Computed example of a mutant assay.
Amino acid sequence: MSDPLYLERDGHRTSIKWHRGRRKPIDPVFTGSRILEAMRLGASVEVDLVIHADHGCAILHNFALDAETTGTGLVRETPASVLRELNLRGNDGQPIADKVMLLEDLCALLSKEKPHPDALLQLDFKEGHAALTPSIVANFGASVAPVADYLILSGGDFDAIGMLTNSAPKLRSGYDPCYGESLAKLQATGDYQTFISEALATAPDADMIYLAYEIVLAADKSGFDIVAPIHAAGKRIDAWTIRQVDSSTIPLIERLLALKVDQITTDDPEGLAAAFAS
């Protein structure tokens, strides 16, 4: 089997993004070995960032430690030294050998093992700008600057993304409007044109717009191509997240490819590549 990197359709390439560092659904999330594999191959891969007690970021999705790690309590109240001693949990909830990584740990690994030129690591920042302090911003910049060419920072609070992006030259940024007031307004009005216009106005410097694939397809069903204005603005679009690749999702993926999304986020990159190999 070839490595799950991208799909080609009608002259357009759509990257396959390894959600939370997974190559296949059975993989545990956020393991250094899988993330480094993806970066070595030239894949697109995503990890999440949550602030910890020592003014830095941990590679975790949840604000609480219990579900993802062998720790308890809040990430925000846990020192870096304690986090590094915690084990991650697998899909069955049982501890695995891999430890929790901090952002600087992951960036150090990338510095030692130079990624493929096409590799792209998405850092999805889970917090808002109110959580940021000068120390957090400075530590973030120091961590990512040496490998910024291979990174893109994303989130739903573009004020926070802007603050962090400015701390590291060459770092690209992305914006996800599928949260908060923006999403609430869309759900109330069904006005996809205004939704995407406001997203583009909010994040004029973003390289990538991240949209829930359900929104992309709902807009299409209503007769509005939500991808076109993103491309017209010179930006790329990621459609997230295909959890399983099966008979129920393959037609949805077919339509996303027809709409020429630039990236599809999935927990099953191998399954996605295999399903469309022919």
Rank of each mutant, 00 (worst) to 15 (best):
G223V: 10
S222L: 11
A232Q: 15
A233T: 12
I226H: 01
G155S: 11
I230L: 11
A228E: 15
P169A: 13
S173P: 06
I161H: 05
G156F: 13
V216K: 06
V227T: 14
L121Q: 12
Y175R: 08
Y150I: 00
I209D: 01
L211D: 02
P134A: 10
S135C: 08
K170V: 13
A148P: 09
D157I: 09
F195T: 07
Y213R: 11
A160G: 09
K221D: 15
F140W: 13
R172M: 07
D191E: 03
L217D: 04
A142I: 10
F125S: 12
L171W: 01
T133V: 08
E198V: 03
E214T: 15
Y150L: 03
S135F: 11
T133S: 13
H231G: 06
D157P: 05
S135N: 15
Y210P: 00
L151D: 02
D176K: 02
N139E: 11
Y192S: 00
D220M: 01
L120N: 14
Q193M: 10
L186S: 07
F125R: 09
F140V: 03
A201V: 02
D220R: 05
G141Y: 08
L132A: 09
P204F: 10
L120D: 10
L211F: 13
D225Y: 09
A142D: 08
Q187G: 00
D159Q: 14
I152E: 12
L164A: 06
K221T: 14
T133Y: 07
A206V: 06
L110M: 14
S197I: 00
L200A: 03
L171F: 05
D207M: 09
A188C: 05
T189W: 06
S111I: 00
L200W: 07
D205V: 06
G223T: 08
K221Y: 01
G180M: 01
S197Q: 15
I136A: 09
Y210C: 06
G174S: 10
V137M: 08
S222P: 08
I215W: 02
S135W: 11
A168M: 05
L121N: 10
A168F: 00
L211M: 11
L200D: 02
E198Q: 15
T194P: 00
D149V: 05
S167L: 05
K126M: 11
K114Y: 08
G155M: 03
L183K: 13
P169D: 08
V227Y: 01
A184F: 00
G180D: 12
